[in-house]
Amino acid sequence: MYRKTIAYRWFTGFNATLLTLISILCILPLVHVAAVSLSSSSAASANQVFFWPVGFNAEAYTRTLENPIFLHSLLKSVERTLSGTLLSMALTVTAAYVLSRTFSGRAFYSWFFVFTMLFNGGLIPTYLVVTNLNLTNTMWALILPSAVNVYNTILMMQFFRAIPKELEEAAHMDGAGYLRSLVTIYLPLSLPSLATLSLFAMVWHWNSWFDGLIYITDYRHYPLATFLQTIIQGGDMRNTNIDPGTLQVLSERTVRSSQILIGALPILLVYPFLQRFFVHGLTMGAVKE
């Protein structure tokens, strides 16, 4: 009934307008940066660019992609994202499978995992452990400390638990061991959740910058996120070890914008796939009967 009242129709119109405005506000900054990155240098520094390129050209991109340091850090990021995701998913899957079984050690292992979510040694002790293990300036420093993702493991465990036990019992009857039932029953049945968690892990690795800043001492070997961070925070010279000459070229507005956009591009590309999965995946762990 209420849908026919005039007041409700006014509300619907107002609501649709408001929601549209808010949604646009969420991507406007990104559009602005994209517009600046495709504008001429002079138009950008004169603040003539809003949400459409002025003096369209792609020079900033060619200059960015010709910069060997940038390319190298891009490569580092790809390497880190792929190896880190692979390692972390392997650990997530095996640990989640074990935690989804009923056996005598389960309670202990569960607490061993959960306690790390409640308490941690903090920045300095963790830094000293990584340094003392001689991982500094290696790829291991970026992928090992975060390899076990407790949150993802719990989510994966919930997925595994939803799979009917009868399937595994039948496999056991036929002589299959744990590893075999994990690989031939559980993994094929949870491909969508595996894809979701892998995407989340990839986004996490791509976006991580702080470990690069503290564990990699030579800026030429930074992963992209760390490299971008030092460029953007370039005003505070104490935080960077990039020589001023390089910094000058890199910190030009259009070039910086193109770098930001290239850094965001992989996320924008996988976002449609992420979005299809995450609503289901997130609410699944939250609701219990």
Partner: peptide
């Protein structure tokens, strides 16, 4: 199967707590 994860957590989560 869970051993690698336990080692990982021990090294990078529990060991730093001693620090």
């Amino acid at each position: 199967l869970i051993l690698p994860s336990i080692i990982g957590l021990f090294l990078f989560n529990y060991y730093p707590m001693a620090g």
